[in-house]
Amino acid sequence: MSGQPPRSHLYVPADQPRFLRAAPRSGADALILDLEDAVAPSRKDEARAAAVAFAEARTADGPRSPELWVRINEGARGHDDAHALLATGRVDGLWMPKATAGPELDALVGLLADGATALGLLIESATGLLSLGDTAGRPGVLHLQLGEVDLRADLRMAPDSAPGDQLLDWARGLTVAHTAAHGLLSAVAPVSVHTSDPEAFRASSLRLRALGFQGRACIHPSQVAVANEVFGVDPGELADAHALLDLFERRVGAGSGVFRDSEGAMVDAATVRRARELTGRGGLQNTP
């Protein structure tokens, strides 16, 4: 896995051969083979076998793109899912559904103790949200993802009836805050069930990025290109970030800790933090 978070995470029902064949060509940065909600109970074993076969077909050496993740089931079945997929040695990470603190998470963290496979936590309940202070800091956890469909049901809220629904912004903020506090790679924005409205998906994605999410889960291939665009680095934004850092470093070198840019906005070390993240440029060698 690269140091940059995936812009798009595409869910793929693992028991659907047609979707599995098409998934690598979707353009998604990460695939999430789904063994849980998207699979009927009678097809769980078939889905696991298909996910294992898909993983085993990946190239063993060299870069592997897109990343391959699997959403396992809950409970004992999920533990067996994890064992089967880890045995392939070809899976980048596992997503734990309805993640909360407790023996199930402890057991999964133990399985991943060698660090070869990462862990993502799906936060889909009030208990999951309120236990983030414990769960997000567990070894191997790389991403948090907010599962808003299940969360709404747990909170006794009405289903999402509009693409721009902002009623869960408080939960989104908690997810982003814990991602930052625990030094995780990314907070993954929730899926949108409104797959027939790409402009609404773009608008909500832009808003979720502004809230601090670094990528988005998708449930339809048509959403992938939009997620890649919104959560990617715009060339103009990157150029502006480099220019701001150039100016900041010149002014700091001249002894100014804070100054105004060409448009009159105040610039200091805190202001350029986002620019450093975008460009990957570190601070000045002798700057505190």
Rank of each mutant, 00 (worst) to 15 (best):
121 L>N: 02
53 A>I: 04
122 L>E: 00
108 L>D: 01
116 A>G: 15
66 P>E: 11
75 G>K: 06
106 D>A: 15
105 L>T: 15
82 A>H: 07
71 R>G: 00
116 A>M: 06
64 R>C: 12
103 P>D: 14
104 E>T: 14
127 T>S: 07
100 T>V: 12
121 L>Q: 01
54 F>G: 01
124 E>N: 08
69 W>V: 02
127 T>V: 10
59 T>L: 02
128 G>E: 06
78 G>H: 03
79 H>Q: 15
102 G>H: 09
60 A>E: 10
57 A>F: 06
99 A>M: 13
59 T>K: 04
94 L>N: 10
133 G>M: 06
61 D>N: 14
116 A>Q: 13
126 A>C: 08
129 L>T: 08
80 D>T: 14
121 L>V: 06
121 L>T: 03
133 G>A: 14
125 S>L: 13
74 E>W: 03
55 A>H: 05
54 F>V: 01
62 G>I: 05
90 R>M: 06
107 A>I: 04
74 E>L: 03
131 S>M: 09
57 A>V: 09
73 N>H: 15
105 L>Q: 04
93 G>V: 10
94 L>W: 09
134 D>P: 03
112 L>E: 05
92 D>M: 09
85 L>D: 03
122 L>W: 00
115 G>S: 11
117 T>I: 00
110 G>R: 07
116 A>S: 15
77 R>G: 04
94 L>V: 13
74 E>A: 05
114 D>M: 08
116 A>D: 05
131 S>N: 12
124 E>H: 09
58 R>T: 07
58 R>Q: 07
55 A>P: 00
92 D>E: 08
121 L>A: 04
103 P>A: 15
77 R>I: 06
133 G>I: 05
124 E>P: 11
58 R>Y: 05
96 M>W: 10
56 E>T: 03
83 H>M: 10
69 W>S: 03
120 G>R: 03
93 G>E: 01
88 T>I: 03
74 E>K: 04
115 G>V: 10
78 G>N: 04
113 A>W: 09
90 R>D: 00
126 A>L: 13
80 D>H: 15
117 T>P: 03
67 E>F: 01
109 V>Y: 04
110 G>S: 09
96 M>R: 09
75 G>Q: 05
79 H>L: 15
130 L>A: 15
95 W>M: 09
115 G>Q: 11
105 L>G: 10
124 E>T: 07
67 E>P: 01
60 A>R: 11
65 S>G: 06
69 W>D: 02
53 A>C: 05
119 L>R: 00
79 H>Y: 12
118 A>Q: 13
90 R>V: 01
100 T>L: 00
119 L>K: 02
60 A>N: 03
129 L>P: 05
75 G>Y: 07
